[in-house]
Design a protein around this nucleic acid. Sequence first.
DNA 1: CTATGATGTGTAGCGTGCTACACAATGCGG
DNA 2: CCGCATTGTGTAGCACGCTACACATCATAG
Lengths: 144, 144
Amino acid sequence: MPVKGIGYFIKTIDDKLKVRADAALKEHNLTLAQSRVLMLLDERGGQATQKELEDLFDVSHPTVVGIVSRMEQNGYVETWLDPKVQRSKMVRLTPKARAIDAEMSAMIREQEESMLRGLTGEQIGQLERLLDAVCRNLTEETIT
Amino acid sequence: MPVKGIGYFIKTIDDKLKVRADAALKEHNLTLAQSRVLMLLDERGGQATQKELEDLFDVSHPTVVGIVSRMEQNGYVETWLDPKVQRSKMVRLTPKARAIDAEMSAMIREQEESMLRGLTGEQIGQLERLLDAVCRNLTEETIT
DNA sequence: CTATGATGTGTAGCGTGCTACACAATGCGG
DNA sequence: CCGCATTGTGTAGCACGCTACACATCATAG
C-alpha cells in the first residue's frame, strides 16, 4: 500500500481539521487560516506589519496578502501604511476581532482536544516530538 | 502558544510535503494528488470508475473531477462511458502513465523515507498508530 | 546626488480542497 | 408504462497554498 503512508495520514488529518474548524467558524465568516492569523496578531499585541505576519505564519507572501485582505473586507483587521516607512503595511485587529478573540482561542483548544481524545499525556508528548522531528527533516535543506 | 499545537504541525508538514513532491514531479507535469490517483488506479489494475476513485481517494467529488480531467489533458488517463451503465465514467491509465508508474512509486517511497529520516522503526510504528488514532477521532461522527 | 541593490508589496495564474446546486441515467413501485 | 427516488456526473464559486513576475520604497556605495 504505497499510497497510504504517513504522508497520506497527514494529508487526511489536515483536510478534516480544516473542514471542522471552518464549519465551527462559519457563523463569524472566518476560516481556520484567518483565525490563526487573528491569534498571531493577538499574541503580538494586536498589531504587526504584514511582513512580520508572513514570517510568523510560515506561509508564502501572496497567501498572507489574500488572507489579510479578506479579513479586512470582513472587518476583522484594518491596515495602513507606516508613515515612517511607507513600504510597510501595518495590520491591526479591530474591536470586532478582539471581541471574539477568546472564543477563537477556545475553539482552537477544543479542536485540539477533540482530535487527541483518548490519548494519554505521554502519547501526546510523543506525537509532538515525532511530528517535530518530521518537520525538521522537511525543513532542512537537502544538501544531499 | 495556542496557535502552534499539533494541528499546526500537521498543516506545516502537509504543505512542505506537497511542495517537495510537486517539485519532484514537475518534469512530468504531474502533482502529488495526481500521482496518488495514478497509484490508486495502478493498484486497481489500471482501471476504475470515477466514483470508485472518489471513494478510494477520500476526497470530494468535484476535486476528483478536476484531477482526472487534468490528467486526461496531460495524457495520463483516458475516459469513456461504460456502454452498459451510461452514467458511469470509466478511467484508465494510458501507456504513458504506466511507463512512469515505477518511478512514481519510488518517488513516494523516497519522500516518505526523507521525511522519516533518523527515526527508528519503532518510532515510525508509534507515529503511525498515533496518527491513525487521531484520524479516527476526526472521522467519528460528533454524536456528542 | 545619483545609481544600484535590497526590501516590501501587489498581481497573475494555477492546482487542490470544499459546499451547494443542477442535470442525466438508472431502477423500482404503483 | 409512468413517475419518482437513487445514483453518478458536471459546474459555479470560494479559500488557500504555491511560483513567478512586476513595481514601489528604502538604503547605501560611489
